[in-house]
Write a protein that binds this DNA or RNA. Structure first.
Lengths: 341, 341
DNA sequence: TTGTAGGCGTTATCAC
DNA sequence: GTGATAACGCCTACAA
């Protein structure tokens, strides 16, 4: 038999309303009654029924804001698809999503967009820039009672309820591990990173280096260049790097610009002698995997990241459930030509 | 504004009961009224509210049977964990799970266990033996109105509503692809399969061969032995195989017995010259990955398989939703030491 | 501080 | 054939 508020009320000889007040900390209950209700609820193992809650929640008007740095970054296409599918699933609960997208790492701009959204918003899914001002902005929202979830990039010391994304350090470790297996532990590595400033990119490189130290003494990093996640820039600096270091046998592409790097390799005709590892599986990367320019790419469940972030918000807003993990870390998977689709 | 049964009833000038009868094909409605209701529901885009349904479903007593060939197969430990977690999540909807486990491929025994369960069961999650008699049994259950889902092994021509599991053929392809990358496309391969009779094992080998033909002319299969998913047998036949074919440079472990194979390799001291690819990541396999005996193993989301199968059943029983895919195929992921946990 | 009652959307059971 | 009504469990406004 399931334990309901009604049943607890009967047992305690009081009304449903009072039990509700106790169980949801709404105050205005005599200490004595409160204690009794809590004891009974505990002993009987009361579990609120999400369906009941969901039904009652319909009377609220729930709006979830989403702000992503997605423009010009095809990785987010799948994230957004996950968000949209979840939106549809939950639309019957009367929950709406307002999605905004921005380009580049302008902190003030991100703050301004957040401000413009905060009026009618019950929760925010944010892909934040790593900056103190954004941290402050998150804390301000939480203070206002808005539920905040960080997506794809965490700000650990902020008051966000939860982070959904990948483990960048382990992503770098995984990249190094697979590169080690493919090169028999010997390689002269050129690293092409997105931005020295981006936290995740830095962490990937650190993870990569960590495995070199631990396992691959014959790996040498011969150069380390930055492409700003831009394909044209990637094309140019990769060409330059390869000409400067003809001894390079492997390239670790840390973030965006994968297509530009590959085109540079192709234009120099050196694809045969290179092992290339990248991240994500956007269409151009898949294309290069098929051409066997890239040997392996590391996949971080973008669709799931999007869907999961909405799940977490939904469970909080509709069911009052706090996320069961502060960090929802998705696995780094290795994709090769055969298991890419 | 959301469209509810009540609203449709008002618009049509009839009662909620009648609308319900039409929308759920319960019969006993005048053709004319039926048509009207359907038209209005369609035009307004009526979407049943799952919360309402869930609440109403509590009055039913839902029992889900699960029958797995799990004994002695640690792969299923994670599958079962997924099932148990889902059970807990859905327990508030008054859905119970009765899980039975069996050992080995005795068709009659599986039929008998199914029969013993079918009394009070609304749905069955079945890990079926590939056999005509099991197909017939599934069809019999469906005839009785029981919702059947196959797990981890499909019987395609049966009347099961849905299959949840992996793509075995692509698993074999992926194994070959990663082996090709690790060996530079040159290998003398020994294959250790679970059972020649198991459909999935056969399909993996076919997938493996398919990529050899397509991509790796310098791969040669020098031997092909069967271990019945038993570690002791695996140990012995692998030893035998390696002694008989000292030219072997790679081993493809198609199914169980991974630990036995690795112990054989270790006992002969030939681990340095071998590339070994396996499936799943049970504890002993992870151990061998850590010892660098196995270079890569292919992972098939066992936890998700278990959880998903319960999801599908729940959505049908409580929300009346047919699964949106007949086959729910999980991806083959490549795990190496760095991304195993 | 507590109780009452109605509504969220769906379904089952009666009565007509 | 159809309609009315009472659940399912929770929440909230209002009355006491």
């Amino acid at each position: 038999m399931t334990i309901t508020i009604k049943k607890i009320a009967e047992i305690c000889g009081i009304s449903r309303g009072t039990v509700d007040r106790v169980l949801n900390d709404r105050g205005k209950v005599k200490a004595q009654t409160e204690e009794l209700v809590k004891k009974v609820a505990n002993e009987l193992g009361y579990k609120p029924n999400p369906a009941g809650r969901a039904l009652a929640a319909k009377r609220k008007n729930l709006v979830v804001g989403v702000l992503l740095i997605a423009e010009g970054n095809p990785f987010f296409d799948e994230v957004i698809r996950g968000i949209r599918v979840a939106e549809k699933e939950y639309s019957v609960y009367g929950m709406r999503i307002v999605l905004k997208s921005m380009k580049g790492y302008d902190v003030e701009k991100q703050c301004r967009i957040i401000d413009s959204m905060k009026g009618e918003m019950n929760a925010l899914i944010l892909n934040p820039i790593s900056d103190e001002r954004i941290k402050a902005k998150i804390d301000e929202l939480v203070e206002l009672g808005i539920f905040v979830v960080t997506l794809n990039n965490d700000i650990e010391n902020s008051r966000r309820a939860c982070y959904i994304g990948s483990n960048y350090f382990n992503g770098g470790e995984t990249a190094c591990g697979i590169m080690g297996l493919l090169t028999n532990g010997k390689a002269e590595v050129g690293i092409v990173t997105g931005s020295f400033k981006a936290l995740g990119h830095k962490q990937r490189v650190e993870g990569f280096k960590h495995i070199i130290e631990q396992k691959y003494p014959e790996f040498h990093i011969v150069d380390y260049v930055e492409n700003d996640d831009d394909d044209i820039l990637a094309f140019e600096i990769t060409k330059e790097m390869l000409l400067k270091h003809p001894d390079i046998t492997a390239i670790f592409i840390v973030a965006g610009g994968v297509y530009g790097v590959c085109r540079a390799v192709l234009s120099l005709g050196v694809q045969q002698k290179l092992t290339i590892i990248s991240f994500d599986s956007v269409p151009t990367t898949v294309e290069m995997l098929k051409k066997q320019i890239i040997q392996a790419t590391i996949y971080q469940h973008p669709y799931t990241q999007g869907h999961k972030s909405v799940d977490v918000v939904f469970n909080y807003l509709v069911h009052g459930l706090q996320p069961n993990k502060v960090q929802h870390i998705l696995k780094n998977e290795i994709k090769i030509l055969e298991n890419i689709n």
